[in-house]
Amino acid sequence: MPPTVKKVLHWLVWGFLIYAIITNPDRAADIVRAIWDIISQGVLNIGRFFSSIVNG
């Protein structure tokens, strides 16, 4: 993909994010919270996996 197309897509994504936050901040916060929960649970599960491997 040419750099110009990447730059345009990058600005479109950021513009959409800003639009979504301005028009519906509560929903945007819920989405961020849900993404954070998914990431944190994933990290915890990876930690549990390696802990079970080490502890046998």
Rank of each mutant, 00 (worst) to 15 (best):
L12M: 14
P3K: 10
I18D: 05
W11Y: 12
R48K: 10
F16I: 13
A28K: 04
V13G: 03
P2I: 01
A28G: 08
K6S: 05
F50C: 05
S40H: 11
L9Y: 08
I38S: 05
Y19N: 06
S51L: 07
I53N: 03
F16T: 13
S51Y: 06
V54M: 05
D26I: 14
R48F: 01
I31T: 13
V8D: 05
I21K: 11
G47T: 05
I31H: 08
V32I: 15
N24Q: 11
N55P: 00
F16V: 13
T4A: 09
Q41C: 01
L12R: 15
S52D: 10
F49R: 05
T23V: 09
S51C: 04
F49K: 07
I46K: 12
V8K: 15
R48Q: 01
M1Y: 06
I46W: 02
A34K: 13
W11G: 02
R27L: 14
G56I: 00
I31D: 12
Y19I: 02
V54G: 09
I46V: 14
Y19D: 04
I35R: 07
G42L: 03
I35K: 07
N55F: 07
N45L: 02
D37A: 04
I53V: 15
I39G: 02
K6T: 03
I22S: 11
A28V: 05
P2D: 15
S40G: 00
G42C: 07
D37P: 00
G42P: 00
P3E: 08
I21L: 11
M1S: 08
G15L: 04
W11I: 11
F49L: 13
A28I: 03
K7S: 03
F49N: 05
P2K: 10
K6Y: 05
F16K: 15
N24V: 04
W36A: 15
R48E: 04
W11K: 15
F16Y: 14
G56M: 01
G47V: 06
Q41T: 05
T23C: 12
Y19L: 14
S52A: 13
L9W: 08
S51H: 10
I31W: 07
D37W: 00
V43Q: 06
S40I: 10
I39E: 11
I31N: 09
A29E: 11
T4Q: 12
K6P: 00
I21C: 04
D37N: 09
V43L: 08
I46F: 08
N24Y: 08
N45R: 02
S52H: 10
R27M: 08
A20S: 14
W14V: 15
I18G: 01
D26P: 00
D26T: 14
I18L: 11
A34P: 00
H10C: 05
L9C: 09
F50N: 11
K6H: 03
D37M: 03
W14E: 15
D30P: 00
P25L: 02
L9E: 13
K7R: 15
I22K: 15
N55K: 14
G42T: 10
K7V: 01
G42I: 00
S51Q: 12
K7Y: 04
L12Y: 06
L17C: 09
